[in-house]
């Protein structure tokens, strides 16, 4: 009769070697996890065809892009860098490579360990599940000193997913206030950065930084777990871009 130990041994080591080794594609980073980049001059068809207004003649706002792929027909390809987290929504407006965010390692003083508290302010559930995937054996964030905590009082980092709804304004503010300093806030996905596909809808805030100060913005719809991991490592001064 097989046992759990035999079964686990049979499957071998599943855990990614990221960030020591670059993320694998398409397993860790599927096609659409990379943001779109233009392959030539940006034409009006691309600008008009983008359903979320992420494309302008000067480039792509990765914080607005929801990876719908409609722009592929108008001279774009998914080729933006994997590690794209930026310190402001403006730093995500680029047609080339997003610069390594300077000063993002605001929690580097905490050394090797970060405790993370997740708050959903109006998500579709995909970002929540991508964040929680960091605990599965493939990513195993605990090997990098990253742990989920059940209380904001024990947390260093507030991870926020979803487009902020009226009913979640007060809870997210209170969660932020409950976290002891030094602390950081990370906005996960297009929704808390720009409103995503819900941008401009009545009753919704278009950006999380209207409510609490945000340290890092991670674009994507949703970002892949590796990209969320990169943002947390960047906060701790240990991301691939800091190497």
């Amino acid at each position: 009769m097989p046992s759990w130990i035999q079964q686990a041994a049979h499957r071998g080591i599943l855990t990614s070697r990221y960030p020591r080794v670059a993320a694998s594609e398409p397993d860790e980073i599927p096609l659409t996890a990379r943001g779109p980049l233009p392959t030539g001059p940006i034409g009006p068809a691309a600008v008009d065809g983008c359903p979320v207004g992420a494309i302008s003649p000067s480039g792509v706002d990765q914080g607005r892009c929801v990876r719908c792929a409609r722009c592929l027909a108008t001279g774009f390809r998914f080729g933006a860098p994997i590690e794209m987290a930026g310190t402001s929504p403006a730093s995500l407006r680029t047609s080339t490579v997003a610069p390594a965010p300077s000063g993002a390692g605001s929690l580097a003083e905490l050394g090797r360990s970060l405790h993370v508290f997740l708050v959903d302010v109006g998500s579709c559930n995909a970002c929540n599940l991508e964040v929680l995937a960091l605990a599965n054996p493939f990513y195993d964030a605990s090997r990098l000193g990253i742990f989920f905590t059940n209380s904001p009082r024990h947390a260093d980092v507030l991870l926020v997913v979803g487009v902020p709804t009226a009913a979640m304004i007060e809870p997210v503010r209170r969660a932020y206030e409950a976290i002891p300093a030094p602390k950081a806030v990370v906005a996960i996905g297009a929704c808390p950065i720009s409103g995503g596909v819900f941008r401009g809808q009545p009753g919704l805030r278009s950006s999380l930084d209207e409510l609490v100060p945000v340290d890092l913005f991670v674009p994507g719809c949703p970002p892949a777990p590796t990209q969320i991991l990169d943002a947390l490592l960047t906060l701790a001064g240990r991301g691939r871009r800091e190497r």
Binding site: P30, T32, C68, A69, C221
Partner: peptide, 14 residues
């Protein structure tokens, strides 16, 4: 091309 199949069933998707 997407872990949650977003866009997969729509015209012009990935």
């Amino acid at each position: 091309g997407h872990r949650w199949s977003f866009g997969a069933l729509l015209p012009g998707g990935p």
